[in-house]
Write a protein that binds this DNA or RNA. Structure first.
Lengths: 214, 214
DNA sequence: AGCGAAGTTGACGGGCCGTCACGGGGTGAC
DNA sequence: GTCACCCCGTGACGGCCCGTCAACTTCGCT
């Protein structure tokens, strides 16, 4: 803004972190244009059915340009996924710090996840990943919850708060429950986030307890 | 075999159910050739990466012939899936009848499912469904277990053996656990079917118990 | 102003898709 | 045994998507 009559040199860019050269600006814009188009296209056609060409048509770029930014449809998906995870993870961390106990922690994490699911679902960002036989993609939030829960569980076990069980199995079980129940929840109208979160929490905690008994 | 000098008329076919006309014979053979090729190709390339052309090349048929039997790759997958389910379901039923209680029933079902998984996995029939972002197809056995467990749970609730809970959520949770833990199990060497089955059983039963408490 | 690098463009060869007009061979009637 | 019918296998075809690349445009710097 204060650039005025400056020649937009490198010194200015380093000064604030913004006001990049035309080159960098255009690069960022193109990348974002591709991601935006991809979001729209995935939402409309579903990930499976969408083609790179569909995404390109959603921008005003040439086909070759796409490949300057991404190698494939998969890579675009991953970029979108990382984006989702980056937005979601802080929320999850916050819940973890506010939690009063292990039980509370699980419920908060799951509740946050389901809320996120419903939001993204409403926004159309989560297309029907289920075309063909029946296919599901691991959403970024899922991965975030997975790692978060795994860490939380490992913590709890280390502190003796939770029984000692195979953490891989446990994390897998928890994520499986959240995933499937989340799916069922989304199909209901209206989706009962709190109810589903309570169900999952109880189920997982009950499972942990029973498994820990030997 | 006893056909001898017969003119292979329709009456003979109806008599035993076999000894079909050349036409029907060839049709069955072609269908089977496609399914066999598809199994191989899916195993080798993965479901995602496999193309209809790959399947066709795995047979000595022309491309047009494929479409006389199946509309798409998806339809071939479904045919293979139905086949798997048809082989697996009787096993599951048998376990159900042998079970002495609800707990035993769950463990038997899960154990049978995991055994099936390992067998099919070894046979290469279950390719890496996870290419690209991370994609998973609902296998036919999964669907069979899903329905079986759902029915079993509904039964148990009706008889008062299991606490009254939302059966959709419950079935979803159970299948989610089995699915994810099954995945983890398959990645270990050697896969511990009994251990995983015990884990899942305990987890699910614990979950059911806790959820039922209110 | 002018040069070199960075980035964009769109045409191109290769491959897959599903279709369809053709022809060969099984089938049943006589 | 013969023959007409029609089922079904065949493979070439137009349409589309893929990833590449030589030519060109734009930017950044001197």
């Amino acid at each position: 803004m204060a650039a005025g009559h400056m020649t937009a040199g490198t010194a200015n860019a380093a000064e604030t972190g913004e006001a990049l050269g035309r080159r960098e600006q255009s690069k960022a814009a193109n990348r974002q244009a591709i991601l935006d188009a991809a979001r729209r296209v995935f939402a409309q056609l579903g990930y499976e059915a969408a083609s790179v060409r569909d995404i390109i048509r959603g921008t005003d770029l040439a086909s070759g340009t796409f490949y300057n930014y991404f190698k494939s449809k998969e890579e675009v998906f991953e970029a979108l996924a990382d984006d989702g995870a980056r937005r979601f993870r802080p929320v999850l961390r916050a819940q973890r710090e506010q939690a009063t106990c292990f039980e509370d922690y699980i419920e908060r994490a799951v509740h946050a996840y389901f809320t996120f699911l419903v939001t993204e679902h409403r926004a159309g960002a989560h297309p029907t990943y289920d075309r063909g036989p029946h296919v599901r993609a691991n959403t970024p939030e899922m991965i975030a919850v997975f790692e978060e829960v795994r860490d939380g569980v490992a913590d709890a076990i280390a502190r003796g708060t939770a029984p000692m069980v195979d953490p891989d199995f446990l994390a897998a079980a928890a994520i499986g429950v959240a995933q499937e129940v989340g799916d069922v929840m989304l199909k209901r109208n209206p989706p009962d986030v709190s109810g589903a979160a309570r169900f999952v929490t109880a189920f997982v905690l009950g499972g942990v307890g029973k498994v820990g008994e030997r």
